[in-house]
C-alpha cells in the first residue's frame, strides 16, 4: 500500500484488498454442475406434483447466460421441442431455480394457438444455481431441461 502511495499508482494488491478479495468468488465459481443444492428436494417435490413418472430429460431447450452479470436480472428463454396442434400441445412449462429461497420462477400456460411453446422473461438468482424447466403436454407426459447459471458477485458501484 505504501509503495502505491509513493509511486502514485495503485498496486494490484491494494485494489484486491479494497474490494474484499476473490476467495468467495472463486469458491462459488468452482461448484460443479452436479446441482446438489439445498433447493433440489423442493424442486423434486414440485416435479412430482406435476408428473407421475420422472420427466424425460431433453426436449426443453434453455437459453441462459453461462455467467450472469448480475443476479437481479437474468434473462431466460426456453423452447420446447413439441408440436402445437389441437391434439397434441405443450400445456404448461414450469421454470424453477433450485438455489432461490422459493424455487418457483414462473409457470407458463400455453394453448395450441401459441404456435410454439417458447417464452422469455427475466429472473432473480440468489447465486450460482441450476435452472430447471419442466414441460407438460396435454396428455400429461413431461420432459425437462436444466442448466447451470453462474452468478458473479456484484463488485462495483453502490
Amino acid at each position: 500500500m505504501h509503495d502505491a502511495l509513493e509511486t502514485g499508482g495503485v498496486s494490484r494488491r491494494t485494489l484486491m484488498i479494497s474490494f474484499g478479495g476473490g476467495a468467495t468468488v472463486a469458491a462459488a465459481m468452482t461448484l460443479s454442475p452436479g446441482l446438489s443444492l439445498a433447493g433440489e428436494a423442493e424442486v423434486q417435490a414440485i416435479i412430482d406434483q406435476m408428473a407421475e413418472a420422472a420427466p424425460a430429460e431433453g426436449g426443453v431447450d434453455l437459453d441462459l447466460p453461462e455467467i450472469a452479470e448480475n443476479g437481479n436480472t437474468v434473462p431466460v428463454t426456453f423452447t420446447v421441442d413439441a408440436p402445437m396442434t389441437a391434439d397434441s400441445y405443450v400445456k404448461t412449462v414450469m421454470v424453477m431455480a433450485d438455489g432461490n429461497p422459493q424455487p418457483e420462477v414462473a409457470r407458463f400456460h400455453f394453448t395450441p394457438e401459441s404456435g410454439t411453446a417458447s417464452a422469455s422473461t427475466r429472473m432473480r438468482l440468489a447465486g450460482t444455481q441450476g435452472i430447471i424447466a419442466v414441460a407438460q403436454m396435454n396428455d400429461g407426459s413431461t420432459m425437462m431441461g436444466r442448466k447451470l447459471v453462474k452468478v458473479t458477485i456484484g463488485g462495483c458501484g453502490g
Partner: peptide, 25 residues
Amino acid sequence: RQVFSVDLFPSISANPYVAFFLKAE
C-alpha cells in the same frame, strides 16, 4: 378467449418482461 398466461413468483425481476408467441389465425 384466453390464449396464454403466466403465474409469476417473487423470483421474477423488477419491471417484469414477458415475451411469447402466437399463431396468427
